[in-house]
Amino acid sequence: MNNYTLNPLATNNASVDTPPHHQKTVIKLTDIEKVYQTKTIETVALHNINIAIRKGEFVSIMGPSGCGKSTLLNIMGLLDEPSSGTIEIDGASVKSYSDKVLARLRNEKIGFVFQSYHLINDLSVVDNVELPLLYRQLSGSDRRKRALAALEKVGLSARTKHFPNQLSGGQRQRVAIARALAGQPEIILADEPTGNLDSVMGNEIMDILLRLNEEEQTTIVMVTHDELMAKKTERLIRLFDGSQVS
């Protein structure tokens, strides 16, 4: 299931020799089904999904277009509800959680990175990075401090006052990663973070994620189309037509 040994950071099969920080399960999906119901057709986007993501893991998800990767990531990130099955975060089912509690979980535990960056064009780089912190009780100067620290980590300290459309694709994705980092989440969910980038910029992004995983033990789940990127992670989940194939 997860025996890529190319990753220099995780030389062992996690299920055989789990480092101490890998023991706790942070996200657990059990019997997840997701069916999209439109007027005429019913699309089964996910079927019988059982995945446990342990703390400190770097997991990649691969599969052909339309196989349900984004849907899976959205369900893990509490952005979407499954049609059936249970999601547990830190061992507790989120089924009964209100919208407010779910929002707080997303805010504190999870950071998202998207293929198309999803930056707000009318906000400067640093304002974009501050966004998750706006939904916390923090002073303005505290927010700014943390946002700048996050930008520092992705090497964008020189661009804080720029606007997204003044940046290259790679820089934009680094802003998006800084935004995900600003809230110091335990988990980063990245949906094809390098999908819109050439290989040089893609590798830059990948290096940032690897470093985060190694240095700060941030749990990362990444959707990718790129076998080379996937090989750098500890574990690979393959989807086909909504079902796990490995």
């Binding site: 990130g77 952005l79 919208d99 407010k100 779910l102 929002a103 707080r104 997303r106 805010n107 504190e108 950071g111 998202f112 999803h118 707000i120 966004l131 998750p132 939904y135 916390r136 935004r179 809230g183």
Partner: peptide
């Protein structure tokens, strides 16, 4: 943008 704000932790309210 709304989706993004929800993703980073904005509740519907």
């Amino acid at each position: 943008e709304i989706g993004l704000r929800r993703a980073v932790g904005a509740a519907s309210g």
